[in-house]
Amino acid sequence: MSWTEDQPIVSLKDVHKSFGEVKVLRGVSMDIQKGEVICIIGPSGSGKSTLIRCINALNDIQSGSITVEGIEVSDPKLDKLALRKKVGMVFQQYNLFPHRTVLQNVMMAPIKVLGQNKAEVEQRARDLIRKVRLEGKEDAYPGELSGGQQQRVAIARSLAMSPDVMLFDEVTAALDPETVKEVLNTIKDLAADGMTCILVTHEMGFAREIADCVYFTDRGVIVESGPPATFFDQATDPRTREFLSQVL
């Protein structure tokens, strides 16, 4: 199946996922267009993280379908490498490789996985490090950086693979309040450059500011979605309103 840019870049249809007896996703559908910024919010345990982990096949699904640029993610014969070239992911706990420097962290995957030329990758890596405003930290080890700095390295590392879609799984949840902003600004820059971003977040103000569409999940289903202006001010579902009244 070939994919064209007018079709959704990421498409979920009636996705079901359970861990043993626990049903985490119970029929989730969403279409995301290229260049869109999507924020997924909801109470803990509502399946937000599982949802985006399914998009890059870190978790498998029981039924339904997920496609990324026409690649069927739930296909048992899925070419995982082809998928992961298109989808980048940033985690709550940064997960940088502690035995490698910032520059090496960013350079590793393109060299080892894609077999790209080392000099070219290094040039691109240095540009990316500058882009996330960490120039001068190239030779530092992750342990020497603050949480916010580590998270920005993680973003640069993911961008080095030149993905078309970026997944952010509560990337500011482990950060000090004052460093949250620097990470959010980096994501904002990315979104402004036209990167398709799917974020699971608890930063309501940020979601309102940056998202093209906000999804509210509860107990494995999407309860409500819409552009932030209408979503935050005119939520219709009582569950959404209760959640918003608690977090806003």
Binding site: R84, M89, N95, L96, F97, M108, V113
Partner: peptide, 22 residues
């Protein structure tokens, strides 16, 4: 930590590469 495996996987590393390199 399993996060090391997961981030390597999401960057496209194979299992063998993840073991060797990370």
């Amino acid at each position: 930590p399993t996060g090391q495996w997961e981030s390597a996987e999401s960057l496209g590393f194979s299992r063998g590469q993840t073991l060797r390199e990370i």
